[in-house]
């Protein structure tokens, strides 16, 4: 039994290579409060400054859409918290989709799960895997940008500035594979952390106001928001049914559409709460206009339905607790180093 003495020393460090500075000429800034190794960089898509710059241009370029009106940034606009400030997203020809545009802040951050093993699932229902697997979706979606891949590739190849950059970065003309890699690399740089909450955690007692500190305590205890909004990005990487949409005649099945497990019916990916003050309206159907409404929604225990998450219940928060919670979300999770990216000059 005791032959176990043959076990050996544990090498705690050096298990996962840190991404910092190892990325070619790209200077990496992962803000405080986020774990660096959770911004995973696929082996076949290393970060380089040229690639990130190219991805940024593609992200802001409406020429990726059929009628040259819609770019990724139309729906993921830095001026609206990298969302669009509207209940639903509007694509080409004014077509409106059925889900609200989530922020892409920290979309490259692995919430929950294990850096070495867990795949990063994108979209409210997790149907795309990793940022690379997501990027070409909206371009081809008929109610978003409505292009075919051959069309968009040929259009971009007609723009000398793109062709030369693709040659520099990938050694090829414009390809859809290069587009997805460049866009994903850019998205990985859209990060928010180093908020007053993080500074308090790091020991700066004056980082949060009294009210925000009280709200923080409500968040982590009585209101048990942290059962789901947990970790550096305030999201557990999981899918939960909080009841949103379950009051409709034909509710959006959410995660169920991917897993076909009854328990996933009406479950959606837990969203980040970083920069939440900027990303109204809230929830996958954008129904809640303010954080006050969000707190009232949770205080009532969500919307009852057979798949409602166990963590949803009557909270019985006092008026003071609700107000403090809102202040914590607004003040504690808004960063002075918000990625307030300006649209780049687009290539000709």
């Amino acid at each position: 039994m005791r032959s176990i003495g043959r076990s050996f020393l544990l090498v705690v460090l050096a298990l996962f290579p840190r991404v910092a500075s190892a990325q070619g000429d790209f200077e990496w800034h992962v803000p405080a409060g986020l774990e660096e190794q959770r911004v995973r960089i696929p082996k076949d898509n290393p970060m380089t400054q040229g690639k990130v710059d190219l991805g940024k241009q593609l992200f802001f370029d409406p020429r990726l859409s059929r009628d040259n009106t819609i770019s990724c940034a139309s729906c993921h606009d830095p001026r609206h918290g990298w969302s669009n400030g509207q209940r639903f997203a509007t694509g080409v020809r004014g077509q409106v989709g059925g889900r609200s545009a989530p922020t892409i802040i920290n979309a490259g951050y692995l919430n929950g799960g294990i850096v070495k093993f867990t795949k990063q699932l994108q979209f409210w229902d997790g149907r795309a895997v990793e940022l690379e697997g997501q990027a070409l979706g909206p371009i081809q979606n008929p109610i978003e940008m409505d292009m075919t891949l051959p069309e968009v590739v040929s259009r971009l190849n007609g723009i000398e500035g793109y062709r030369s950059q693709f040659q520099q970065v990938f050694g090829t003309d414009v390809t859809s594979e290069g587009m997805e890699k460049a866009i994903a690399a850019f998205e990985r740089t859209v990060l928010s952390g180093d908020a007053p909450f993080d500074r308090l955690k790091a020991g700066d007692e004056s980082a949060l106001s009294e009210a925000a500190r009280r709200g923080m305590s409500v968040f982590f205890n009585k209101a048990h928001c942290s059962a789901c909004h947990t970790g550096g990005n305030f999201a557990d990487g999981g899918f939960h049914n909080v009841g949103i949409g379950m009051d409709q005649d034909e509710p959006d099945p959410g995660r169920y559409s991917q897993t076909k497990l009854q328990g996933d019916f009406g479950s959606f990916k837990t969203p980040t709460l970083r920069e939440i003050a900027r990303t109204a309206p809230y929830m996958h159907d954008g129904r809640l206009g303010t954080l006050e409404e969000v707190i009232d929604f949770y205080d009532k225990g969500g919307i009852p339905n057979p798949q409602l998450d166990e963590e949803m219940r009557l909270l019985k928060l006092t008026g003071q607790e609700k107000a403090d919670l809102v202040i914590f979300l607004q003040e504690g999770l808004s960063s002075a180093s918000y990625p307030d990216t300006m649209p780049p000059t687009l290539p000709e």
């Binding site: 867990t118 999981g238 479950s267």
Partner: peptide, 28 residues
Amino acid sequence: GEITVPSDGLLTFYNARDGKLLYNQPTG
């Protein structure tokens, strides 16, 4: 881990007397 999150199971060791975390590794 979360039942909706794949591959997030951990193997952890704690000191049985004081509860101190001694070891924590992903298992896949």
